[in-house]
Design a protein around this nucleic acid. Structure first.
Lengths: 117, 117
DNA sequence: ACAGAAGTACGATCGTGGTCAAACTTTGAT
DNA sequence: ATCAAAGTTTGACCACGATCGTACTTCTGT
């Protein structure tokens, strides 16, 4: 059978403007999604995230992240699975995700995540 | 004589939330200011920037950057000088400015600014 | 075949932020 | 003293994005 075409095409992160990436990362709920993907299991269903928004809003956030080249989505049954496109994104925006995640973790824990020269 | 107190206090970048930093960097005009400061002379008057906005809007942008801990401001006559707080900011948000400036330069020139491992 | 689960699509609302013009302040020069 | 330059402040406007509810679609069990 043909691959499930319910999920639109994923752009190459190299083709995504910096502006769009920042707009994706500036929303706290979306940043939380990226953080959860970076520390938890590599594939998480939309419903498996800890988010304080409605389903329709969550759908919106996942789409913004996908179109920014940050996450990969595919269906498993009725569930839509999400994973971080870490390597591809890092090639297009070196250091950006690491810097954001580091700052985020520092803020969350009120401590320095790990020594940085 | 007492130091010119026309310029409000500058926050320590360590005390600025990541959210506020991203909000400062997401606006293209503000990012342009940071870019111009990162490549040009270290101190530039408000009027010395290449910006396509009115003076009052520019004032707004400079304030947002200052309150995000990104720039330092002081008066020289009627001119308000601006400089990038590179070291202090980098300590608080390691790699963030570099990543943003790198991506910005790559986009502007449609080429890779410099090799990155 | 049907019901429920998991998301999506579509409008509508609402807050926030970028923008400008106008009036004001401070400084330096004439 | 006065004037112009350089910013600031204030108030208003406006566009866009986050949010939600409702209706709809697609898949899995039973």
């Amino acid at each position: 059978m043909a691959p499930n075409d319910r999920v639109p095409a994923h752009p190459d992160p190299r083709d995504v403007p910096l502006q769009q990436v920042l707009e994706a990362l500036i929303e706290p709920a979306r940043r939380s999604i990226v953080e959860q993907l970076s520390v938890g299991p590599s594939d998480i269903a939309c419903g498996g995230f800890d988010l304080a928004v409605s389903k329709s809003t969550a759908t919106h956030h996942f789409r913004v992240l996908r179109e920014a080249g940050l996450i990969q989505q595919y269906y498993a049954g009725t569930s839509r699975m999400n994973s971080l496109r870490r390597e591809e994104f890092d090639e297009a925006f070196p250091g950006l995700l690491e810097a954001v995640l580091w700052a985020s973790e520092r803020e969350a824990g009120l401590r320095v995540p790990e020594a940085r020269p």
